[in-house]
Design a protein around this nucleic acid. Sequence first.
DNA 1: CTGCGACTTGAACCGCGGTTCAAGTCAAGG
DNA 2: CCTTGACTTGAACCGCGGTTCAAGTCGCAG
Lengths: 138, 138
Amino acid sequence: MDETLLDIGEVAERTGLAPSALRFYERKGLISSTARNGLRRAYRPEVLERLGLIMCARGAGFTVAEISSFLSAGPGDREVREKMAVKAGELNQRVAQLTRLRDALDHAATCDHEPLTDCPDFKRAVWNARPESTASSP
Amino acid sequence: MDETLLDIGEVAERTGLAPSALRFYERKGLISSTARNGLRRAYRPEVLERLGLIMCARGAGFTVAEISSFLSAGPGDREVREKMAVKAGELNQRVAQLTRLRDALDHAATCDHEPLTDCPDFKRAVWNARPESTASSP
DNA sequence: CTGCGACTTGAACCGCGGTTCAAGTCAAGG
DNA sequence: CCTTGACTTGAACCGCGGTTCAAGTCGCAG
């Protein structure tokens, strides 16, 4: 047996993911165990890298299905690359919105307004944080 | 009856939210119908503003429970204000991470690497997008 | 009075992203 | 040999954020 292959417990420990999550990802096609040591999954070390990518994408709000489609991007796969570009654009929108919302929240945290929701500055800040206001500001 | 009060259908239409969602929010304490016209909910116009805030926060990834606690912020409610400040900080982290991820995705969309996951530039970009790397950049 | 249609309710259901559980299988060690 | 303990499976369950549905209740028009 190849000593470099990793047990599921090993992978779980190194990534911080639960074994159940790893099996779940495997069911969903995000990762694959390349061999079996008896019944047990044996993962190649590269899976750690892949899982890093997956965790990152999940953390950024991508669904498992999206990640799956991105990960299976073929050679000249125009389709997926385009989707990626679209996603990148969406991320930009999102970043802008979150930034504005943070500003609103910053104000909220420090402003002493009786019912916070009545503070005009807060209102303005929230208004600015609407998704649409990302694009339109004439 | 006060003509300025809004029917649930009215509110749904103006906000773009489903009536079921409005009732759901009401159950969760995010909004309240201030009167009943017979059985029917009657909303004050201010609810529109409040819903704008709610939609915005939901869009930014806040849970309904979080929003609820923020909305019920009392006068000198240190607790909640502090939580807001914390949330604002988290948003900053998130913005940084999303920005980095967008960079990774931008590269992925244009780079012609056989298995995308092997592209060293992509790997680096993803590596940089790890949540922890937000703080550490030596 | 008799619809009609827009509302009301609670309860059931959905997709997502996993977790938990019971029951079974394996390899190694005493 | 038999135990131990980490794995295996499928199926059931969970919280979240709602949606859908059946059954009931209104106000208003004809």
